[in-house]
Amino acid sequence: MNLSDFLVVSSLLFMIGAYGAFTRKNAIAVILSIELMLNAANLNFLSFWRFLHPSSMEPQIFVLVGITLAAAEAAVGLAVILNIYRDFGTINVDEISLLKG
């Protein structure tokens, strides 16, 4: 197994996440899909670290940042969705359209 195999897995994971993020109606499912995308980026960083720059610290820091970001986004996202649920009684992204556009 070399770098290319890992990159293929990460690009597939990223696009599966992107597919979910753009097509899912349920707002929480959108967040789940975005988590997949972030995981793909982290996998990329660690693959590059392992095969290209094993002595570099940068990709590991980026992965830590990515994981922090995922946690922060989960917290804020769920609060935003809870707020929506209270106001609209639904979390279907397609049904929430007071703002024209």
Binding site: N2, S11, L12, M15, F51, L52
Partner: peptide
């Protein structure tokens, strides 16, 4: 798009490290 990204990434000349 996934096929494109995967093709681009696997097609790139990566300089593997021996560290």
């Amino acid at each position: 798009f996934a096929a494109g990204v995967a093709a681009i990434l696997t097609g790139h000349q990566w300089v593997n490290s021996n560290a």
